[in-house]
C-alpha cells in the first residue's frame, strides 16, 4: 500500500495497533482540511503491528498528552520532505480536560464548568489521580 510522503507536517508513529482513531479524536484532526492518512496495522519489526498517522500540515500538538494516551508513540516533524525532529513524549505531570473523573463522590460530578485535572502520582506505574478526590480513573473520555 502506498501513501504519499508529506512535505510539511507530522508523522505520529509507533502507535499501539488499534489506537490511531483514539488519537485522531484527541487531537481533533477531523477539524482540519489538510490531507491526513491513518494507517492501521502496519507491519513493525519492534511491535509486530502498529498504527501511524500522517498529517500534511504544520499543526501544534500537545506531545505530552499523546504520551498519556500511548507512551511508546514517536512524533516526527517533517519540513520540506525531511525529518527535522523526533520526539518521544514523556508522561505529562498534569492532564487537564482529557479525561473525566468517574468518582460519584467527587465535586466534579456536580460543579458546573470545572476543569477535570489529573496529576501524575506514580511515574513508574503511570498512575494519575484526580486533584480533587485523589481517585484513580476508571476514566471516561471527554
Amino acid at each position: 500500500m502506498n501513501i504519499d510522503s508529506i512535505r510539511n507536517g507530522l508523522v505520529i508513529d509507533h502507535i499501539k495497533s488499534g489506537k490511531a482513531m483514539e488519537i485522531y479524536h484527541y487531537l481533533n484532526l477531523d477539524s482540519l482540511d489538510c490531507q491526513i492518512a491513518i494507517i492501521k496495522n502496519a507491519t513493525s519489526k519492534r511491535m509486530g503491528k502498529k498504527d501511524i498517522i500522517k498529517i500534511d500540515a504544520e499543526i501544534s500538538v500537545d506531545v505530552d498528552v499523546l504520551g498519556y494516551i500511548d507512551p511508546n508513540i514517536t512524533v516526527n516533524f517533517i519540513e520540506n520532505g525531511v525529518k527535522v525532529k523526533k520526539l518521544h513524549p514523556e508522561l505529562p505531570v498534569q492532564i487537564t480536560d482529557i479525561i473525566k473523573c468517574s468518582n460519584p463522590r467527587c465535586i466534579t460530578s456536580i460543579e458546573q464548568d470545572i476543569h477535570h485535572i489529573f496529576k501524575l502520582s506514580d511515574k513508574e506505574k503511570g498512575i494519575y489521580r484526580c486533584i480533587y478526590c485523589d481517585s484513580t480513573p476508571k476514566v471516561t473520555k471527554e
Binding site: N103, R105, C106, I107, E111, I114, I131, Y132, D134
Partner: peptide, 10 residues
C-alpha cells in the same frame, strides 16, 4: 464542609 470530595479545593 461539603459532602463532595474536593469541594474546598474548588
Amino acid at each position: 464542609r461539603h459532602f463532595k470530595e474536593g469541594a474546598p479545593m474548588v
